[in-house]
Design a binder for these strands. Structure first.
Length: 413
DNA sequence: TCTGGGGTCCTAGGACCC
DNA sequence: TCTGGGGTCCTAGGACCC
């Protein structure tokens, strides 16, 4: 039996832990740059705020209904996620952290998985303040669907059997894990409107529509496991840092600064997990929503002659790529840097040229990075990152780092 | 004015090999 | 008139997930 533990309205719930006055009120959390609503409390859903709605489109609606609007606070959510996982891990011998707010638990062999799930749910709420729902089933896909039903029926915990026709009829086809917008349109065209129809459909027609991936999903829904638990997350193959700009960038120098910053952030990610990048890509784009403006987007990739985690080299190469693709005369909205073909530093090939491994250079880079990490922006930064940062994203309604910053620890009166 | 960010996997098609 | 057969590797694009 597989269980999927999913935090309810996770970002909103994190905010509520530290501001209990938000309980019972409509609350939404916005994406980066205060762009879209990415988390909504039940009250906000009831008002009719759709998932992913651009904030500027729902601003009036929010004001009218007294919705509390918050910028996203990823440090807080990341830390709360870690706490939830640490509680879950006490109860399940095998656990897979699937996303920031979801984990699969292998409850195979547990005598009464439903009552254990209810106990887990109580403990998570008690110890972290976060409400969760748990769906159970013979496969991951069934547990996901079960979770969906548990939320819909306000049940907390629910077991979904592959043979339960009426329950599976209650899961719309687009709510099946692995069936997105495109596939659900094509499935509906052949009369498949819910999970039960889907499980019953001839597998050849499913394969014709969505290939082997969709066929696997179908089998999973019928109770045949095709997806394994992945306890140790396989190492990342690529990593990306990209941001929309707070205001359009029209100046090459500013763009260069932004790209340098993204390159350094991406490099820090791979350094923290001990990997090296063998290539990188830089991309830039204008605002695709502005039909009245000239559009341009481009990307270029480069293979490094030797895998590296050296921020200086990565920034130099990112700038070279940017030079190649940048065209003046456009109002750019977004840029990003992707580090490609990551591999653990321990796999590093013997070097043909020694210059990059110069130990003094290495020590220097490590020292700067350590200072930058310890004292954040105030400690040290690379020259290419610039100091103006006109392009920085907006996050005007962000709550404090309650659990991650000494200065932000909540005060109890 | 304003529209997120970070990933994975699969497939088709082209280039190239013998 | 008529243009093989069997591979690999890479990339771009499309689908999905949160």
């Amino acid at each position: 039996m597989i269980a999927l533990a999913d935090c309810n309205n996770f970002y909103v719930s994190c905010e509520r832990v530290f501001r209990p006055s938000l309980e019972g009120r409509p609350v939404i959390v916005l994406s980066n740059n205060d762009g879209c609503a990415v988390a909504r409390s039940n009250e906000a859903k009831a008002i009719g705020i759709p998932m992913g709605a651009p904030f500027h489109q729902i601003k009036k609606l929010c004001e009218y209904n007294g919705v509390v609007v918050l910028s996203s606070n990823y440090e807080l959510y990341g830390d709360m996620s870690r706490r939830v996982v640490s509680v879950l891990a006490r109860f399940a011998p095998e656990l897979e952290v699937y996303s920031i707010d979801e984990s699969f638990l292998n409850l195979t062999g547990v005598p009464n998985p439903l009552s254990l799930s209810m106990h887990i749910r109580d403990q998570v709420k008690r110890w972290t303040g976060i409400p969760i729902s748990i769906g159970l089933g013979a496969t991951k896909t069934l547990s996901k669907a079960g979770n969906r039903l548990a939320k819909k029926m306000k049940k907390g915990c629910l077991i979904l059997n592959a043979t339960d026709e009426s329950a599976l009829n209650g899961v719309a086809i687009e709510d099946v894990w692995g069936v997105g917008r495109r596939l659900s349109i094509r499935l509906r065209r052949i009369g498949v409107r819910n999970a039960w129809h889907f499980a019953q459909a001839p597998s050849a027609s499913i394969r014709a529509i969505g290939g082997v991936t969709l066929e696997r999903t179908q089998r999973e829904l019928s109770g045949i496991p095709c997806l394994e638990m992945e306890e140790v997350s396989s190492p990342r193959k690529n990593t990306c840092c990209s941001r929309s700009f707070g205001k359009p960038v029209t100046d090459f120098q500013e763009m260069e600064e932004a790209v340098a910053n993204y390159a350094i952030r991406a490099t820090r990610k791979i350094r923290s997990e001990g990997s090296l990048a063998a290539g990188l890509q830089v991309f830039i784009m204008t605002n695709r929503f502005r039909e009245d403006q000239a559009q341009y987007s481009n990307a270029r990739t480069l293979a490094l002659d030797e895998p590296t985690d050296d921020p200086i080299r990565i920034v130099q190469n990112a700038k070279r790529l940017l030079h190649n693709i940048y065209r003046s005369g456009f109002a750019y909205k977004k840029a990003g840097v992707i580090l490609l073909d990551l591999a653990p530093a321990s796999f590093r090939q013997g070097l043909l040229f020694e210059e990059y491994q110069n130990p003094r250079r290495r020590e220097f880079v490590d020292a700067v990075e350590e200072v930058a990490g310890r004292y954040r922006a105030g400690g040290a930064f690379w020259g290419g990152q610039g100091i103006g940062k006109q392009w920085q994203m907006r996050r005007e309604m962000r709550t404090p780092g309650y659990t991650t910053n000494w200065d932000d620890i909540p005060v109890v009166r």
